[in-house]
Design a protein around this nucleic acid. Sequence first.
DNA 1: TAGATTGTTAATCGATTAACAATC
DNA 2: TAGATTGTTAATCGATTAACAATC
Lengths: 215, 215
Amino acid sequence: MNSSSSSPKVPIPTLERLATYLRFLIDLEASHVETISSTDVEKQTGINAAQFRKDLSYFGEFGKPGVGYNVQELQARIARILKIDQLQPIMVIGAGNLGSALIGYPGLTEHKFHIAAAFDRDPAKIGCLQGNLMILDEADVCTVNADIGARIAIICVPASAAQGVADTAILAGVKVILNFAPIILRVPERIVVRNVSFLQELAVLSYHLSSDTKK
Amino acid sequence: MNSSSSSPKVPIPTLERLATYLRFLIDLEASHVETISSTDVEKQTGINAAQFRKDLSYFGEFGKPGVGYNVQELQARIARILKIDQLQPIMVIGAGNLGSALIGYPGLTEHKFHIAAAFDRDPAKIGCLQGNLMILDEADVCTVNADIGARIAIICVPASAAQGVADTAILAGVKVILNFAPIILRVPERIVVRNVSFLQELAVLSYHLSSDTKK
DNA sequence: TAGATTGTTAATCGATTAACAATC
DNA sequence: TAGATTGTTAATCGATTAACAATC
């Protein structure tokens, strides 16, 4: 039933932090640190030590009492949990500025996310190289994905086009969607969608400005 | 003490939803809808009716029992709460693909967010027009902001440069920061930072893929 | 062994939702 | 007035954090 191997439902905030831990561990590994304790993690990331241990406990046992965690092993196991222990193919739909930013984002590769194909419907863009990736015709999403097998789609098209490309992506075998368009996508229950809303982010920040106009 | 006029601390999720309500109300207003009830909101946005009423209750009374909410009035009051009832100037630092995507994002203007200046340190970009906005030299953030008075900065530079530009922005009078760089910014306590992490978003989605490799 | 640190249980905290008296 | 819907209180749910026995 559960999408992970272990049974209890994992809180979303835990999954988000897992990505943070992974990044942190990759850096530690690069600095040849071999072992860390949950207290070290708290010191260096600001995330509560008990929280760190609790987060991991959803997935099994990772550390040695009295010793701590092996950086290399923990890194590998978290990558496994997040299914990025091997290259995870992704399709990007919409090769405007935002799509291009994602295509060119170095952090993705480091975390084994692999943008395997990028699509647009603008004939002026189709066939162009973006980095070393050729922009493909949006009409070919299905046929291309038969080869590529991406189960993650990132939608970077305008709001008016978003539902349409989401439908196409799902038809092409995509299981989860990262949506940057400011609309609520209607998708089958089995499809997981996450929305990134710049407006929401800015609104929260704007609220926190003190009310006086002058600085 | 509190940054808003009313006393009780407002949960972040409430603020995020406020942005959603605002967008929804702007659309309703465009369709000449005059009144809505919390039940209507639930039907059309999926957000629980009690949640909607509770969210608003942090800021006062907005509706008429037995009637509902006046769309136009509620829209105006939420905009006021979020401090986007008048144009809110923003600076964007880093005019790469991501920065350019933000500069060209039409939703911002509709919500009274105004990108008043964009900076980069690449001489090849400085002086170029991006839409109708000229890219300025990152070295001029302080002098430019003396005119513009932006209290919101969006950081779209690589991780290695992010802390530096954050420091500069704060020096220039910025109070809150939207950070796209995958690092934890060190800032004075009074400064509010929100981070957008593409890696985190993708990791949560990737986790939800079922484990079998085949589609 | 003594000291350190884990994994987990229990306590706390905060956010969501249901229920309902007040009121248009 | 009767019906509808608000604003708010109380109940529920879930996530964070503290405390500690187990263990290296």
